[in-house]
């Protein structure tokens, strides 16, 4: 069955999501939201990996996207642990308040 949606549509979608993620990281000040934006970036990557695979009839990208998901899960667990350990010392998740050291 030939798909009717061209590759460029998927790439545009993935780029848009990636840019949304990047802007979110740069603009938002809440550590958890920044964190979610990073996840959006990683999932944008997954979309384009799968799209390339589908259109070039390959399989490597699918394996790659599984790896990306695994790593994202590991990163989430470590990241949330870091945020919790910070929250114990200073009950806030606003990035602007972590300024003991100048940026």
């Amino acid at each position: 069955m030939e798909s009717t949606v061209p590759l460029s549509h998927y790439l545009v979608l993935s780029t848009t999501l990636f840019v949304i993620g990047v802007l979110g990281v740069l603009v938002r000040r809440n550590a958890i939201v920044v964190f979610m934006c990073i996840e959006i970036m990683l999932n944008a990557v997954n979309i384009s990996l799968i799209a390339f695979d589908r259109y070039m009839n390959l399989h490597t990208g699918q394996v790659f996207s599984f790896m990306v998901m695994c790593v994202a899960a590991a990163e989430v667990s470590v990241g949330l642990a870091i945020i919790i350990s910070i929250f114990r010392n200073k009950p806030t998740v606003n990035l602007d308040e972590f300024n003991i050291m100048k940026w």
Binding site: F35, A44, V78, F98
Partner: peptide, 23 residues
């Protein structure tokens, strides 16, 4: 704590770019 948070957020951000480049 602060070092870990800054390192984590910027490191994960960089991972996004690296991955997109690889893709």
């Amino acid at each position: 704590n602060e070092a870990a948070l800054k390192y984590f957020l910027l490191g994960a951000f960089a991972t996004g770019f690296l991955l997109y480049g690889m893709t």
